[in-house]
Design a protein around this nucleic acid. Structure first.
Lengths: 340, 340
DNA sequence: ATCTTTATCGGGAACGATTGCGTTAAAATA
DNA sequence: TATTTTAACGCAATCGTTCCCGATAAAGAT
């Protein structure tokens, strides 16, 4: 079941003109008389002609659509990023193809292979926690597919990258906890292999070291799927709670982990911040209304999406392969509320 | 800047075969010897051949991609719906093209026209609050484009629809308020023209009437952009607060409105539920952790997305235009917490 | 009046994949 | 051995657009 579209041939037949002439009129070429152009445009509008984008893409070797791969759409951070991407893309006549990896390297690869079948002109990706093998990504990149990384980057691939200032964000959050008098600060981190996790870990360590607080390994726990499953956060938190010297503050390394910790504390009836303080990365705009209102590090998600799409546009529309790439680091915002 | 893809011609040239033979091998046709098939498949894998999807789409008149138009991606309800759509789509080899209307009828139409340039095989749409004129939508529908409505439907267009049981949801919420002893129950509704707003209004009225509580017009206020702007919710709430007989409970008609009301009450230091109770439609999974935990009517967003995509699939893959359409009504969940 | 320029249009070959039809040779049958 | 069947492959058209040429006629230049 498909819709029978009107083509350039239909117009040319009706108007007794060649398809070349019709095409030229529609593309506003100079080598055509103003009368025939008007004639064609009027008729085209009348029968509601729409160019077949597949034919155009085939001919021009450009699809005017891009691919976006994130771990999960229904995540406040990523949905805001996508919002930013879409807003710039649609302004520039690009269609956005979304797929989610669900933190699975396998699904990520599948989506990637499908999207890259000469189908997209560029790709914006935030790699999954599982991703270790970036052979395929590297391959299509070397073949010339413009790629921009957002948030979770791969160092080995040289291209534009848009990230938040994770180091500083983590540093600020940890320092804030220290300033508030907390000294046993635990980190509930995302998967250790992730670029953002590494950077945030460094920021956390830097703040502790600066305050001459020793960094203890057992105060750092990991959620290998970024808190996608609550059980993951639960067991991470439980391992912290079983410690002989329990933490007095938690720094959570991702959106889902932050809210997961909050849920854990509520379930276990742990008072925040009296028993345990909590701060974490989050872009959920309800954190302010939580009980207690949550202190968070907020990333400029929408702006990051905008930046990524803008950079991708510049790559897609440049004639030569670009040589110089930039890593745009956007600053985070520390919102201090009642949970710390 | 584009990637130079390897084509069927490259394979045929290298292997001294015709393009037809190569195509048949790749498509696993029967009229080909097992040896040449293996030869071709091996070589194709070696040079990492990927069929050009634009060429395939042009030939088959099927793009294997669908369009999704929602008001805003960064909205918990819609992002969950999209999640459901994407999960089914990717399983069936379909790519999902997303665009957002931002509650603007103009942007919606723009996106629609762009997507329907022989580019998508089907469409899933939740119309914007502004949408009044559905001429274009009706036109492409009559031309044969399979369409499925989710959440916000248009009655005049006969096709599959997936909605939540808005009437019952609103009825249950209102009845719950009544049972709790509230009698001055206000409704902060979405745009009056929206199908969901109408249905929820009816549910609200039904519950009140059943309890012999008169329905008062000044207790029903509207947010014409669904609460997309906080100011909208603010002025709606303010008008309720200026009433000589203020409401003792609020029933909020959409996700953004619900959280907007919550924000309003926090800002105005209105105690919930002592001064004013609050219940509303919401799919944000942090409502449970709010202060106070929010009573909500939750829609099965993910499942609605799945259902919509499944129905769309059936339309796209049926030979003949379908005659019988179903409106799938999925039941909502009433989660009673501390705010009522 | 002849030649050159210019404007305006048509013919037809791409783009990459698919497929009906024709061709060839081998295999099967009479 | 003669004839028919069948397996395996090539040729060429097609999908809808674009664009390089070439053709034509009018306009301008000499």
């Amino acid at each position: 079941m498909k819709l029978s579209a009107v083509t350039i041939k239909d117009i040319s037949r009706e108007l007794n003109l060649s398809t070349s002439t019709v095409s030229r009129a529609l593309r506003d070429s100079h080598e055509i008389s103003i009368e025939t152009k008007q004639l064609i445009l009027d008729y085209a509008r009348k029968i509601n002609y729409k160019p077949n984008r597949n034919a155009q893409s085939l001919k021009e070797k450009k699809s005017h659509s891009i691919g976006v791969i994130v771990s999960e759409i229904a995540n406040s951070f990523f949905s805001q990023v996508i919002n930013g991407i879409e807003s710039i893309a649609s302004k520039n006549g690009y269609t956005v193809n979304i797929s989610q990896s669900m933190e699975s390297a396998e699904r990520e690869l599948m989506n990637l292979e499908y999207l890259t079948s000469s189908f997209i002109d560029g790709l914006i990706i935030s790699v999954s926690t599982e991703t270790k093998n970036h052979l395929y990504l590297k391959e299509v990149h070397e073949k010339g597919l413009p790629i921009v990384f957002v948030d979770r980057v791969i160092d080995e691939i040289e291209t534009h990258k848009v990230i938040a200032d994770n180091f500083k964000g983590a540093y600020k959050a940890t320092k804030h906890l220290i300033n508030k008098g907390y000294s046993k600060i635990a980190l509930v981190s995302n998967h250790a292999g992730l670029s953002i996790a590494k950077e945030r870990l460094e920021g956390y360590k830097a703040a502790l070291s600066e305050a001459k607080i020793p960094v203890k390994d057992n105060m750092i726990v990991f959620c290998d799927h970024g808190g996608m499953l609550y059980s993951e956060v639960e067991s991470a938190m439980n391992s912290l709670m079983r410690l002989r010297t329990k933490p007095d503050a938690i720094f959570a390394g991702s959106d889902k982990i932050t809210t997961g910790c909050m849920r854990f504390m509520k379930n276990k009836k742990i008072r925040v911040p009296e028993d345990l303080a909590l701060i974490g990365f989050s872009n959920n705009d309800l954190t302010e209304l939580l009980n207690p209102p949550l202190s968070v590090i907020k990333q400029p998600a929408f702006e990051m999406g905008e930046a990524a799409m803008t950079l991708l546009l510049s790559m897609m529309e440049s004639k030569r392969p670009q040589q110089k790439f930039e890593t745009r680091i956007q600053s985070t915002e520390l919102l201090i509320r009642k949970s710390t």
